[in-house]
Structure formats: structure tokens, C-alpha cells
């Protein structure tokens, strides 16, 4: 089997378009959702203390079960949702459980004196969070959230389980009809690499810059 550059170039636009329309869409919307939900989980856990144990179990359950099964489960349970919506929901919720742990690290890194100062100034809880804790905690958390977003990005091909025409699925289809899998999967892999590697480097830089 030889490498056919012309063929590789000819499938590139189709793969790139699937990449932008599905892979990027799911990653961006899913990451925003995960970042928002993760913060909610982290703040709820911190505020409720020991009473948040049931929430902790639910989050652990979601974190410790495979995305493909979750995709299938949600897809067949909610028949009225499109496969793409299911994908965004499942990825958003799944990775929110990881991001919650990162927020938790950021919140834990805030010294006790900050909380005590907020109490001494009798700030209400939402002011304590918004004006004192979060601005400091998020600084340490941001690169970590970015890293989880990259991890989510590389998991998007799991959408093949519910039949979403995402880049790797398209690559597989083209490969199936032409029997040229080498070029299609190589291009698909390279597109992933080209998007995730620079972002990972960026996160490493960001981490150094944001570190105290």
C-alpha cells in the first residue's frame, strides 16, 4: 500500500469541514458547559461540607463510567434529542466532574486568612466568593481547565457510538468506500495533533505566567 498524496489532499477539505462543524463545536460548547457546571459542583461541595456527600457520589459515578456507554444511555433514553445535542450534554457533564476537581484545587490553595478576612468584614457568601475567593482561585485553575478541554477534544471521536458524523467517523467512511485508510486516518490524526499540541503548549505557558 503506497501513500497517495493527491488523495490525502483531496480528502483534507472534507475532514476539516467535519472537524470544524462537529468536533470544534462539541469541544467549545462542551468545555464552556463543563467549566460552568464544574464551578457549580465545586462551590456547592465547599459550601455544603459533609452534606454534599451524595453529590460527590453522583460525580464519582459519572467520572468513573465510560463516555460511550453514557452517550448510548442518554441517546436512547431521550429520543427527542438530536445526537449532536446528546454529545454536547454528555461531554459537558462528564468533563465537568473532572473540572470540579481542578476548581477544588484552586479553592483549596486559597489561604485560610482570606476566608477569615471575608468573615471579619462580614461579607455575604456571594461577595466572599465573587470578590475574594474566585478571582484568586481561578488564576491557578485556568490552565488545568484548558488541559481538560484538550482531553475532551481528543475524546470527541467517541461520538461515533451514536452516529454523529464527526471527523474520525467521516475518515472511516471515506476509507471504507475507497479502501485508502492510510491517508484518511493519517490526515485525521494530524488535524488532531495540529490543534491539540499548540493548545497544550499554550496552557503550559499560561500556567507559568499565572503562577505566583
Amino acid at each position: 500500500m503506497t501513500w497517495d498524496t493527491e488523495f490525502a489532499l483531496s480528502v483534507f477539505p472534507e475532514l476539516l469541514s467535519a472537524f470544524v462543524r462537529v468536533t470544534l463545536l462539541v469541544t467549545v460548547v462542551g468545555s464552556l458547559m463543563a467549566a460552568a457546571l464544574g464551578l457549580v459542583w465545586a462551590i456547592t461541595q465547599r459550601s455544603l461540607g459533609r452534606r454534599s456527600l451524595p453529590l460527590r457520589w453522583v460525580l464519582d459515578f459519572i467520572r468513573m463510567t465510560p463516555i460511550p456507554v453514557q452517550l448510548l444511555f442518554v441517546y436512547y433514553t431521550f429520543n427527542n434529542l438530536s445526537a449532536l445535542t446528546v454529545g454536547i450534554l454528555v461531554f459537558g457533564i462528564h468533563y465537568s466532574t473532572y473540572m470540579a476537581e481542578s476548581y477544588r484545587a484552586g479553592i483549596e490553595s486559597i489561604r485560610k486568612g482570606q476566608w477569615e478576612a471575608a468573615t471579619a468584614l462580614s461579607l455575604p457568601p456571594h461577595r466572599t466568593w465573587r470578590a475574594v475567593i474566585l478571582p484568586q482561585a481561578l488564576r491557578a485553575t485556568l490552565p488545568s481547565l484548558g488541559n481538560w478541554a484538550i482531553a475532551m477534544f481528543k475524546d470527541t471521536p467517541f461520538l461515533i457510538f451514536i452516529g454523529v458524523l464527526e471527523m474520525v467517523t467521516v475518515a472511516r467512511q471515506i476509507g471504507g468506500s475507497t479502501f485508502r485508510y492510510t491517508e484518511t486516518f493519517t490526515i485525521a490524526g494530524l488535524i488532531f495533533l495540529a490543534a491539540s499540541y499548540p493548545t497544550a503548549i499554550l496552557m503550559r505557558r499560561l500556567e507559568k505566567r499565572l503562577a505566583y
Binding site: 500500500m1 475524546d155 474520525v168 472511516r172 485508510y181 488532531f192 495533533l193 491539540s196
Partner: peptide
């Protein structure tokens, strides 16, 4: 390391499963 980290597990599985037999 960067090659395996950067290209997604699913792509790697498909590569082993579909491409290697062609070779």
C-alpha cells in the same frame, strides 16, 4: 510522547485496526 498524546486514542485504534492490515 507528543504523537501518542496528541492524536486521540480512537484514531490510534482505527489506525491499528484498519491501516496495519493494508500494510
Amino acid at each position: 510522547v507528543e504523537l501518542f498524546r496528541g492524536t486521540s486514542l480512537v484514531v490510534q485504534v482505527f489506525f491499528l485496526f484498519y491501516v496495519l492490515p493494508l500494510w
